[in-house]
Design a protein around this nucleic acid. Structure first.
Length: 788
DNA sequence: CTAGGGTTAG
């Protein structure tokens, strides 16, 4: 009944229907399924090119399995259907299946296209070696490579860096094959040279090309950019007759990566004036550049421009742009703006979540950061790193370490950045043993050349009081940067080695590392701790003159602190009145502290009043004020200050000290009754005091800030948290081991005196890190020389 | 062929 004629007509109809299923048509898969089921319903058995066509469409759909099912029912599948499947498997990343299909295809039916499909597959799966191997096989099997072969095998070769010989061989082969006049082949060859960083050869080939297309230009420009030859790239772009957005984008991002913000912004402006079409790449780059350089105003302008210019952006467009905006705003201290962008995003991905998480965490809004962390639909190692470092830096060292361990059990092997966060936690906590263990793990995992981890380790050792280890690390790190130098200078400063800190600074200049604003903060602090007033003033004055760094409020605060400690209170007052900012709380705090040390009650009261005005909820100002009254014996005023504090609901941060013993951190509060061994600590302390008195120790009761009987005062003194922690450590650490104790506030004057005698009595070194600096007590002396 | 998220120093 069905004549061959009729079948042919039906087949032609199906064939023309299947023509509608081309890859760009989003409906092609469902359309093909519909046509296919019509075939089944009407009893039509597709063969030959119609069958191949159907297989090909399924191959390019998300359901390769449909294609495979059809394929498996063909008794003798031809090379066309095989080629479709090989491409499909390779394209979807299933390179093993592709290779299987390839291998089981008899040599007799293979053709060029078939080899090309497999080579392209390898190159798509980033296996350059397999590309070349198959290319050689193809030559052995006596097939002639064509343009497509060269293009894809060159693409594969480009994946293998630094293969100069192979590049040259390939070049020769291209020349011999006569494919040298085909642009796509030459472009691929240029790309290979670029990828092997053979820029001279790449450029030579590029210049010799008779004809160039857009890809030729972009390959050359981006090649220069990727090989860090920005100026060569720029020259090429400036000489381009047509304006290719991609090349401009590459330029901009290249400039940004090298911190050449000005040139990047100039290109961006030029793009605008010439009228070169900008795309999402342009916007994201430039916004991200603004974020890094802290250019809020410009970033906002670009944001507005994007909103005006791009009517209804697709998710592909808006997602990266919005991600860059989130980062821009939080880096410019506008976390709430960042949040608004984040909230209004039609689609978000992991990058968006990580960006907003960083924003909250960096702003110290840890509670909100935590809840973002918990809510996140997925996390990666970056998520963990952000959270761990954020916790460490905002005083949640223990939680940071906990998270670091949790990360190991839950998700990924920590990378060196995650280690960096954990090490910072140890630095904050003073957990030396824990830090040492992390260091050991780092070495074992081969991360010991990591710059960030190394820098964190310098700080960790320094902040745990082990200067030698910090110094050795600094000297043996395979490479160091300005952060390392800053860390080391800061370490010396905190330990009171002002002269050495300045020496190191000079050495830093000598090796050609430019100081930044942080360098100057650290050297000003170093001078302040060591009483190097003239030096500090000199460097303060030189920072702008010699290095173009404009002193910020924080630098002025250090200068005021430097003068105040040295008793030059009036000079400090002059700095405050002449500085180009409205003096903020830190400046007044420094002045107040100086007034207290040098007993200038009048100026001190002025400072304290300003401070309390600025920060009515800040405990420090009330405490300093009342301490000052107490020093002068004005107990009524002490009471008044304390009452004011109580009335305003301000609570004094309780003194708290801790010490690591046998890998465990033991915490002591003032007048502690919580620690399980506190009674024996008190007993031991009393014994020590008896021996200390024999050497001349007299408790200095002027550090007791309440009015009471002197005997009672002495009891209060001996209950200070730092004394308890030191005594505990002396009891429990191995004989002769250095004691390292940490305190959240500044050390008390009597404790400072007591530890000198104590170090003599027990013949051991006692190291105390307080809120500001280190004190090393040894043989009745302190490293600070009583200047603190 | 070009873009978006991290770290260390005070």
């Amino acid at each position: 009944m069905n004549s061959p004629e009729f079948i042919r007509t039906v087949a032609n109809r199906y064939a023309s229907q299947l023509q509608l299923c081309y890859p760009q048509n989003p409906a092609s898969f469902s359309l093909a399924k519909a046509i296919h089921s019509h075939m089944i319903a009407s009893g039509f058995h597709p063969r030959g090119h119609i069958l191949n066509r159907l297989i090909d469409i399924y191959c390019k759909s998300p359901r390769i399995i449909y294609a495979r099912n059809l394929f498996d029912r063909i008794p003798d599948p031809d090379i066309v259907s095989r080629t479709s499947l090989v491409s499909a498997y390779a394209f979807s990343g299933n390179i093993k299946k592709a290779a299987e299909m390839f291998d089981e295809t008899p040599l007799s039916i293979r053709d060029n296209v078939f080899y090309n499909a497999m080579i392209t597959g390898y190159s798509r799966n980033e296996d350059g070696h397999a590309c070349i191997k198959l290319f050689r096989q193809m030559l052995r099997d006596e097939f002639r490579p064509d343009n497509f072969t060269f293009t894809s095998v060159l693409g594969g070769l480009a994946l293998i860096v630094d293969r100069e010989m192979q590049c040259k061989q390939m070049h020769c082969m291209v020349l011999k094959s006569g494919a040298a006049f085909i642009i796509s082949v030459l472009n691929a060859l240029v790309y290979v040279y670029v990828n092997c960083a053979l820029m001279f050869e790449a450029r030579k080939l590029f210049d010799e090309m008779n004809e160039k297309d857009e890809l030729s230009w972009t390959t050359m420009v981006t090649g220069y950019v990727r090989n860090e030859e920005l100026d060569a790239a720029r020259e090429l772009v400036d000489g381009m007759s047509e304006n290719l957005g991609v090349a401009w984008n590459a330029m901009i991002s290249g400039y940004l990566r090298h911190g050449r913000y000005k040139e990047a912004l100039d290109m961006f402006r030029k793009m605008y004036f010439i009228g070169i079409k900008m795309d999402e790449f342009t916007y994201t780059s430039i916004i991200s550049g603004c974020a890094h350089a802290g250019l809020l105003q410009l970033g906002k302008q670009v944001h507005c421009y994007v909103l005006r210019t791009e009517g209804k952006p697709t998710p592909d467009f808006s997602l990266p742009v919005n991600n860059a905006l989130v980062t821009l705003y939080w880096k410019c201290d506008k976390v709430d703006w960042a949040r608004e962008i984040f909230n209004n995003m039609p689609v978000r991905d992991l990058v968006s979540w990580n960006a907003i998480l960083s924003g909250y965490v960096n702003a110290g809004r840890i509670d909100e950061g935590r809840s973002f962390f918990m809510e996140m639909p997925e996390r990666n190692h970056l998520t963990w790193t952000v959270m761990i470092s954020g916790l460490a830096q905002h005083g949640f060292g223990e939680e940071g370490l906990k998270l670091f361990n949790q990360m190991k059990t839950e998700d990924f092997e920590p990378c060196d950045y995650a280690f960096t966060g954990a090490i910072t936690s140890c630095a904050m906590l003073g957990a030396l043993e824990n830090g040492r263990q992390l260091h050991a793990q780092l070495v074992r995992l081969g991360f010991d050349s990591s710059l960030s981890a190394g820098n964190a380790l310098i700080t960790m050792y320094a902040r745990c009081g082990v200067m030698e280890a910090a110094n050795t690390l600094f000297l043996t790190m395979p490479c160091v940067d300005s952060v390392s130098w800053n860390a080391m200078i800061a370490a010396l400063g905190q330990h009171g080695h002002g002269i050495q800190a300045l020496e190191l600074f000079k050495q830093m200049l000598k090796v050609g590392i430019l100081p930044d604003r942080i360098t100057f903060l650290t050297i000003l602090s170093a001078c302040s701790h060591a009483g190097l007033v003239r030096e500090g003033q000199y460097y303060f004055n030189s920072m702008h003159r010699l290095y173009g760094i404009i002193p910020g409020e924080d630098h002025y605060t250090r200068l005021v602190d430097l003068l105040c400690r040295a008793g030059k209170l009036l000079e400090a007052k002059d700095v405050i009145t002449s500085m180009p900012f409205e003096p903020g709380a830190p400046v007044w705090e420094a002045l107040l502290a100086g007034c207290r040390t040098h007993g200038n009650i009048d100026l001190g009261i002025q400072a304290a009043e300003r401070l309390i005005e600025l920060m009515p909820k800040h405990d420090g100002s009330y405490v300093l004020l009342s301490n000052m009254y107490a020093t002068a014996g004005r107990w009524d005023d002490v009471a008044n200050a304390r009452k004011l504090m109580r009335d305003r609901g301000v609570r004094k941060e309780p003194g708290c000290s801790w010490v690591e013993v046998e890998n465990k951190v033991h915490v002591f509060l003032v007048d502690d009754t919580v620690h399980p061994e506190v009674q024996s600590v008190y007993n031991y302390l009393n014994q020590l005091v008896i021996e200390m008195r024999r050497l001349g120790y007299v408790p200095d009761t002027k550090f007791v800030l309440h009015d009471m009987e002197s005997e009672q005062k002495e009891r209060v003194l001996s209950a200070h948290s730092e004394k308890l922690a030191v005594a505990f450590a002396l009891m429990r650490l191995p004989r002769g081991a250095t004691v390292r104790v940490f305190k959240n506030l500044r050390i008390c004057g009597d404790c400072h005196n007591a530890f000198k005698f104590m170090s003599k009595v027990v013949g051991r070194e006692i190291v105390v890190r307080d809120a500001k600096r280190f004190h090393h007590f040894r043989d009745c002396e302190c490293s600070c020389g009583d200047y603190w």
